[in-house]
């Protein structure tokens, strides 16, 4: 498939949800939907991951955990908010323990609606997220080149090409 240029690894965290979306994320890995045929692997380690899937809204106690997972992921990274709770708080938005959707804590790139979000929507969302990842990666590459230019040592300077 041309839309999956690389094998994105994802890490999944449940902010505070009814776990309906969590089991749908897991269902994506199983034979019926099998995202592994695109090279998507659900890894347990945030340091290996390109994509962060968050289900459920953010509350007081899960906020530092989510922030920590986000910071541990290497750049460039994409955050996908899955389910209505993750996008806006949904039916729990009036609860006393709610801080709001995931975007109240970390920047979100793609919102996947649905209560609970279907595996098909999650696959669509990951595809959208990968497009974002590709643009982010291009921008990041340019920035890295700039950074390298500053630190380049004089004897590594390329020879000027003859006219």
């Amino acid at each position: 498939m041309s839309m999956f240029k690389r094998s994105p690894w994802m890490v999944h965290y449940d902010g505070a949800s009814c776990n309906g979306c969590d089991i749908e994320v897991l269902a994506c890995l199983t034979p019926r939907y099998d995202v592994e045929r695109f090279g998507v692997i659900n890894t347990g380690n945030p340091k290996h991951a390109d994509v962060l899937l968050i289900t459920g809204y953010i509350n007081e106690q899960s906020q530092p955990v989510v922030r920590q997972i986000y910071q541990q992921m290497p750049d460039p990274k994409v955050v996908i908010a899955i389910g209505i709770c993750a996008t806006s708080g949904g039916i729990f938005s009036e609860c006393y323990n709610t801080k709001g959707g995931v975007d109240s804590t970390i920047p979100v790139d793609v919102y996947v609606p649905g209560c609970a979000a279907r595996p098909e929507s999650i696959i669509d969302g990951v595809v959208k997220g990968l497009a974002v990842l590709e643009t982010k990666r291009a921008a990041w590459r340019i920035e890295r080149k700039k950074r390298n230019r500053v630190f380049r040592l004089p004897f590594f300077k390329p020879k000027a090409s003859p006219p």
Partner: peptide, 28 residues
């Protein structure tokens, strides 16, 4: 991005002008 597809509005609409479509809203 707020609708939870419970269908309560569909049940309570007096003129039956609301309905559920099986197609999901695409991610954005």
């Amino acid at each position: 991005m707020k609708c939870i597809q419970c269908g309560f509005c569909v049940d309570s609409c007096p003129r039956k002008c609301l309905s559920n479509d099986p197609q999901y809203t695409s991610p954005a």
